[in-house]
Nucleic acid binder design. Structure first.
Lengths: 213, 213
DNA sequence: TGTTGATGTGAACGTTGTTCACGAAATCAA
DNA sequence: TTGATTTCGTGAACAACGTTCACATCAACA
């Protein structure tokens, strides 16, 4: 009847995710978790080293889910026979926007948390999840027939993703909500449109252009 | 001899900025400020309502300074007779990157702080400072001869700024430092190159293109 | 000089993350 | 079964934090 150690860990993570979603990082309190999980504070620290580890675990789950929904969106388009690069990138961005909107409190916490570990050692599972997201975008770009070698394509994928990311996070700095998502979409559409057009016309090599062309 | 009320406020803000720069938002402690300023904790709360107000004031100063350096960079190029749009945008981005690098601890705090006031009321001085930054970029875009009306140009300016912002903040998630700024620069160069090329070829109207052209 | 208003002070309060000595419960040995 | 040993849950306790407030201190004025 009593919950397994792993079951209790998952219960704690579910509670932690809800708390983060409601009130951000400062709402993740050890005593609240313990109370809602029906255990004592000490037991929380028995399952996780500290609250940072709880936060990290929640973020991992979120990043993992985001990757999954992105892949699912791509698979859907594949099934529908959509091969247009611009269309697929927009769908990818849409999946990202929807995900952020579905996690209004916890997604900012993911970003804020990321920055705190800037001093930490080498790459870890966190980076692996982010790289997986980049790879999806890079895969889409590969379908488009731009003259990009692997290195350039990876760079373009990271650039595109980071740009969409910046639009979404910048957009959520401001106030209004319904108007805000509209603004975000306009920016994303503009970015993706310009980006694809620019790649088609060799803009990626703008400053390294040889005169042989 | 004793410091004026306003002088002491500025001293507190200078100390606060240094603390934020060293250890981020969680390093901004009332007792540390009081100790370093040579006053008591209570006096800090006499000058500012709470630590959030101190943090906000520091951020305002940073945003203000960023706008000033951006304008200065544009003025420099003007003086040199540089009118090339791509060149000017890159200079603007460079000013931004340098600014972020010069404030490794406090700039993330600016962003994290911005997100916390998402529930607050209407626009305030914060938004005014951000709009000033957008206006600089919009001014540069105006010089370029793209077929953009005022609304489209403002949208393009916000998109471009948000994208650069995303690249910089995403880049600082990762670890290494010298290699990281190089990666950021490659992404910015790619973005700006593609963006300008895309605008030149009407990519901004990609999905609303009329066939009269 | 006495009064009043403003300003500086630090002890004190409530809340936080985290620890740890203790007891209960489970597992194993004989 | 019984005793020993290990594992685990508990909540009181600690330090550090933001914030408050009754009181002391001081400057200006009548």
């Amino acid at each position: 009847m009593a919950l397994d150690k792993e079951e209790m860990s998952e219960k704690v993570l579910a509670i932690a995710e809800a708390l983060l979603n409601e009130g951000g990082a400062e709402n993740l309190k050890a005593r609240t978790i313990a109370e809602q999980a029906g255990i004592s504070v000490g037991s929380v620290y028995n399952l996780f080293a500290d609250l940072d580890e709880v936060h990290r675990a929640v973020n991992m789950r979120l990043l993992d889910r985001l990757g999954a929904t992105g892949l699912a969106a791509m698979a859907d388009l594949e099934r529908q026979g959509v091969t247009d690069v611009q269309h697929r990138i927009l769908a990818m961005a849409a999946a990202y926007v929807r995900f952020v909107e579905a996690h209004p409190g916890s997604w900012p916490a993911v970003l804020a948390f990321n920055r705190r570990r800037a001093t930490r050692p080498g790459p870890d599972a966190y980076d692996a999840l982010l790289d997986a997201l980049f790879d999806i975008v890079a895969g889409v770009l590969k379908a488009g027939d731009f003259g990009l070698d692997d290195g350039r394509r990876a760079l373009a994928a990271r650039t595109l993703w980071s740009s969409v990311h910046g639009i979404v996070t910048s957009g959520y700095v401001a106030n209004s909500n319904s108007r805000q998502t509209e603004e975000i979409w306009h920016q994303i559409e503009l970015l993706v449109g310009v980006f694809v057009k620019g790649l088609e016309h060799g803009g990626a090599f703008a400053h390294a252009e040889t005169k042989s062309d």
